[in-house]
Write a protein that binds this DNA or RNA. Structure first.
Lengths: 344, 344
DNA sequence: TTGTAAGCGTTATCAA
DNA sequence: TTGATAACGCTTACAA
């Protein structure tokens, strides 16, 4: 690989001169020399060695962004808004994927540190505080997106999960539903807990006592778990007429299973999420949308702010998600005549 | 950030000694010294500087993987199989995303080069040969995934698009369809051309003359283009009874539009792809599945092989995709009584 | 068993 | 307007 020394040799100048001309737009060299150097660089296919530069300058000009997976459009939506901000500030972004493996998450974060990234945006795996403690101990600015870890004093930008749970549940209540179940997965994240808490709060606010038999978790290890759960609910002595799903993907699975349930006994469904599949006409799932583009943008801003001033007190920023009512909660046949109106 | 010199100072040894102990598992130091160094490293939170190491060793131990976007599960499926292979070989993978922007693609590849990545896996944007020419001029091993660029002599691992087009079309022919349309997007990629060519070949092989009025491209710039196209086809003097979609996402859009077409005049649809959404019961789109996991694995293997031996002649490896018949092509009411049987 | 010193590709400082 | 030289953090001969 051609180095600055090769160019220096080619044009018979010192490496210092070549470096100056190539990196900074310095006018203090003669036009002739500048052109000669530029041309030699182009001719030889010179490309600066990012590692040498970072080593010398003491900064990598890069930040890391960590995702659990790249399924759906979540990572894409976040990156689409975050990357331009980071780049405008002169940072390159390294994308890390942990594939839901805590070991992999730790390893990826470790390489972030070894590469001396100057800041990290992360969608954390629940329960892995130790990994992020290491980040903070290393003094690297950290901003959580979409979720956060209790006990880690980092900035966070996320959906207001509690409000989302409330909104979704209120929507169903407004449609006249009184037996509203909730099915989540066994992920212990703060964000999911908030969504679930919102569901309970809305029930209580409506004067309904949350029924623990209607609040269920799918067992991630058992692929049949969701089927068992759903069918179990439809056979419930007092079956639910609606189900809230804090996790959109679980709702999609449920909708498949509900195809086999007679319409009369089929609960309506609604979820927190907002990925494109839910808006597809054949799916038409009512959702409260996680504002991913906004999360990406704000998280990037926040990270840049923190890199500029490391003393700021970390702050959690919770964003409201919009309710999008779709066919999955459209009243097909009039339910019990209580509060007919369509919800906001 | 704590460096090897800090540790050396802390334990009152030379940096050379510390480096030896910390990097290679060298037994030639006294147990006592080794432990002291290890402990100091841990206590001080030492993390090797990846850039300094790479600089010194002359190799980055990293490869780059370039995607257009992170939508759907394509990138995830590929990474899930490719990452473990690359890591087993001692390489860290940097993920690049160009968000369908040629400028961004170029810039990302440029940073791959500046970071001295030792190999590159890429899902190339069509028409951007120049970017990849630069990679090859720089002598960096390159393997294309899912698609390839004409004129760039690189390895490639992809779906056999021609075979996929044939399979899909034959399936429809076997169901008795004779007027089979094709709707693709205006992407000029080799892979899409192959799929389209397969469609034509199958028609010809069945003794049917491809009808140019049934072969249409959606205009990516016009969001209504697909609707116009689909509705146009249903009003065709001799309307198609089936449509082949080389691009799965276009099929999904079409299915939404077809909801409004009376069932009698509604063509059946099938696509090349295989993302999870197509297998959802509410969508149930017949597909030929792109074997992404296999592509990721083989591409990683191929890249490693090429890094080991740069002289190998580049080779294109085309993989067969499995046909998965779903409701979208299930014969609802018996069509014209020609060749009833379900296809393989 | 440990220390010294050169060098990886850059940039920055200062002298020429 | 240019050229030395040191330094960034690390590895690796080689010397002690």
């Amino acid at each position: 690989m051609v180095s600055i020394a090769d160019i220096a040799a080619a044009v018979e100048l010192s490496t210092g001169t070549v470096s100056q001309i190539l990196s900074r737009r310095d006018t203090r060299y003669s036009e002739r020399t500048r052109v000669r150097v530029q041309e030699a660089a182009k001719r030889l296919g010179y490309r600066p060695n990012a590692m040498a530069k970072a080593l010398e300058c003491g900064r990598s000009n890069a930040v890391g962004i960590m995702f659990a997976d790249l399924v759906g459009s979540l990572a894409n939506d976040i990156l689409t808004s975050a990357l331009p901000m980071l780049e405008a500030a002169g940072y390159h972004a390294l994308i890390g994927v942990n594939l839901w493996s805590p070991e992999r998450e730790e390893q990826e974060l470790e390489t972030f540190l070894e590469r001396r990234l100057e800041g990290i945006l992360a969608l954390p795996l629940d329960g892995q505080q130790a990994h992020y403690q290491a980040i903070q101990q290393a003094g690297v600015p950290l901003v959580f997106m979409c979720d956060w870890l209790p006990g880690i004093p980092a900035d966070a930008v996320a959906l207001d999960g509690h409000a989302a749970g409330v909104t979704l549940t209120n929507h169903l209540l407004a449609q006249g539903h009184r037996r509203i179940a909730l099915i989540s997965n066994d992920n212990q994240s703060e964000q999911l807990h908030a969504r679930q808490a919102g569901y309970r709060a809305a029930l209580l606010a409506a004067g309904l006592q949350p029924d623990p038999t209607l609040e269920r978790l799918v067992d991630g290890a058992d692929p049949d778990s969701i089927k068992t759960l759903i069918l179990g609910l439809t056979c419930h002595p007092r079956p639910p007429t609606a189900i809230v799903f804090p996790v959109e993907a679980v709702a999609w699975q449920a909708m498949e299973i509900l195809c086999d349930v007679p319409e009369a006994r089929r609960p309506v469904v609604a979820a927190v999420g907002g990925l494109p599949m839910s808006s597809h006409r054949l799916v038409s799932l009512t959702t409260v949308n996680e504002p991913l583009a906004k999360i990406g943008r704000l998280a990037a801003e926040r990270l840049l702010a923190r890199m500029a001033d490391r003393q700021r007190a970390p702050r959690q920023q919770l964003l409201r998600g919009d309710l999008v009512v779709r066919a999955s909660t459209a009243p097909k046949k009039p339910l019990a005549k209580r509060k007919g109106g369509a919800a906001a």
